[in-house]
């Protein structure tokens, strides 16, 4: 059981590596931003699996905070892409 969970955790970490490939190689700026967005969602999955392995509930706290901050970051990047200033 724990061995299988370990394998799943390594697969999830490898998937976020794929997102890093898209961030580095992306031909245009919006491609890189898509990579950053998906990377933020995948980290939440990593937090959830680690919270099962260690039987501690506070790691889920880190996951929820990560969702919120990644949402704010993506909105800021999207606002930059539309070419508007921050106060309009």
């Amino acid at each position: 059981m724990t061995d299988f969970l370990n394998i799943l955790l390594y697969i999830q970490i490898a998937l976020s590596g794929i997102c890093l490939y898209r961030i580095i190689r992306g031909p245009s700026i919006p491609d890189r931003m898509v990579g950053v967005d998906i990377f933020g969602i995948l980290v939440v999955g990593i937090c959830a699996i680690i919270s099962i392995q260690t039987e501690k509930s506070f790691i889920l706290d880190i996951g929820i905070a990560w969702i919120i901050l990644s949402f704010i970051g993506t909105l800021t990047l999207a606002k930059y892409l539309t070419g508007k200033k921050l106060n309009e």
């Binding site: 706290d61 704010i72 909105l75 800021t76």
Partner: peptide, 27 residues
């Protein structure tokens, strides 16, 4: 009791206001 504390929570609270400013404009 848990990890976090003053600094991390303060950043999240500032995030809620920054979210409103981003969506509606700073006025």
């Amino acid at each position: 009791l848990t990890p976090g504390g003053g600094f991390a929570g303060g950043v999240v609270i500032a995030g809620s206001f920054i979210l409103l400013i981003l969506a509606f404009g700073s006025d």
